[in-house]
Design a protein around this nucleic acid. Structure first.
Lengths: 138, 138
DNA sequence: CAGAATCCACCAGGATACTG
DNA sequence: CAGTATCCTGGTGGATTCTG
């Protein structure tokens, strides 16, 4: 065994939340699930730039962290549906706020972020926010 | 020159916001600055686990992204003060929400996150949230 | 005190191929 | 369709040192 040299720090709530949301696609995944896009293949179609491998990994983490729940239908072909847990739903206002803030400041943000050499690809479609109409009655 | 193989994707507002907040200490830095902790050394003291190198880097990014502003006092020893920009302030409700959500669910989150082998260090102090009283008059 | 310059360990996440 | 196993690379962020 080897003692970790760089221990990760979790102190105030901010860090806990950061940890939960830490993962390139996690916010988007949660957003998708909240919109009733619950099957892995659907989520994959919604996030075409995410690999299935990474998607699976982040879904698993979210599940292990208790943010989403997984329902497996023992069929062929297999069918799986994810849904937000109680805690997961309580996270949605934050996701929504991020979504809205980003859209509201889109023009500015795209400008300043475009300078960043790390960002090379930008597609501009705002996320759908139809959830309110559809599945918010949870 | 070399064409990037793995372009970063930015599409809906969610991703823009994720990009801005992407950095281990960025939310905490913003939180600190919003509480009138504006000098680099102070911020460093507030976040003892962050290196000065990383702190500097993330401060610079936040500044380049227009989230914070930097004021340099040409003195010896040098003095620098950061402050939130207009846009930066508009981000604070999200930071606050993350802070509050994390604190509210602290017990649960610490339990599920503790299982994660990647996390080895956890300190439990909630962040101070006294800002409302002090510097919200911006 | 602020921060730039190095150096490097580690891992998130992308590509691919394979099972049930 | 869902998920796992391999393999690999770019980049984050930690440690350290040096300057003004």
């Amino acid at each position: 065994m080897y003692e970790r040299k760089i221990p990760l720090t979790i102190d105030c709530g901010l860090h806990l939340t950061r940890e939960i949301l830490n993962g390139k696609w996690k916010p988007a995944i949660l957003n998708a699930i909240s919109m009733n896009i619950k099957r892995p293949s659907e989520i994959g179609r919604t996030l075409p730039d995410a690999t299935r491998r990474v998607l699976s990994a982040q879904l698993k983490e979210l599940e292990e962290h208790g943010i989403i729940e997984k329902k497996i239908y023992p069929q062929l072909p297999p069918k799986v549906e994810y849904s937000l847990s109680e805690i997961g739903w309580s996270l949605m206002p934050i996701i929504d706020a991020m979504n809205i803030w980003g859209d509201q400041n889109r023009d500015f943000l795209e400008k300043v972020i475009a300078k960043d050499p790390k960002i090379t690809k930008m597609s501009k479609s705002p996320c759908e926010l139809i959830r309110r109409e559809t599945s918010d009655e949870k």
